[in-house]
Design a protein around this nucleic acid. Structure first.
Length: 202
DNA sequence: CACCAGGTTGACC
DNA sequence: GGTCAACATGGT
């Protein structure tokens, strides 16, 4: 009974919103860049910044690691927190430029390596693992916590992630789609309706 | 004008 | 362990 709760939520979201097909990006490294830039920012601003980077041929680990800091700051300014994001993009770029064969690492080890990079916390690391590296890790974001708690599934990041990963089939496509649906639902409904009007409750 | 957006960090208790 | 301000731009 409890073991099907997550699947029920997923089916309701899918039925209501349709497939999301995340993450929108042309390359894995573009996912890494987007994951850092999207922190506390609207996705439209990230698209603008990524467009700027592409225009300057900077969507590449080596190129991004070497580019002038002030130039990078100006290109990502539209995403906010632009000074620290520029720094953190270059830190991550240096890591991925030096580590192009990380696909056989254990997920836990990989996650800890990503945590050691300034600016990459749980959600960003897990987004990179799932959407850039195509490995099974369920991404929890603020909407996930809000919606789950609203639906009577309590817990913070770690506890909820443990539940999603243990109660769901280890299906990468499902993990990607489910998180995308949660974010889509959160943006569309969480701020415009009260929790007791949540269409997922019934 | 106040508030929020696909978080993370470092300081403090 | 948890809580809190700081980080900064762009849209409603």
């Amino acid at each position: 009974m409890q073991s099907t709760k997550m699947i029920e939520i997923y089916n309701k979201l899918l039925e209501k919103l349709g497939e999301q097909k995340w993450w929108p990006a042309e390359t894995p490294f573009e996912v890494v860049v987007g994951a850092i830039l999207t922190q506390r920012t609207k996705w439209e601003n990230v698209e603008t910044a990524i467009h700027n980077l592409k225009e300057h041929n900077l969507l590449d680990p080596d190129a991004l690691a070497k580019v002038d800091r002030e130039k990078l700051e100006s290109l990502v300014k539209c995403t906010g927190f632009y000074k620290q994001k520029a720094e953190r993009l270059q830190i991550a770029s240096g890591y991925f430029a030096e580590n192009r064969l990380i696909s056989q690492m254990l997920i836990g080890d990989l996650r800890n390596e990503l945590f050691s990079l300034k600016g990459i916390g749980k959600e960003t690391a897990d987004s990179i693992i799932l959407y850039a590296l195509n490995r099974p890790k369920f991404v929890i974001d603020a909407y996930t916590v809000r919606i789950c708690n609203c639906l009577g599934v309590s817990g913070g990041y770690d506890r909820l992630q443990e539940r999603f990963e243990s109660e769901l089939p280890q299906d990468i496509t499902l993990f990607k789609e489910f998180h995308a649906l949660i974010v889509k639902y959160g943006k569309e409904f969480c701020n415009k309706h009260k929790c007791d009007e949540c269409v997922l409750l019934s």
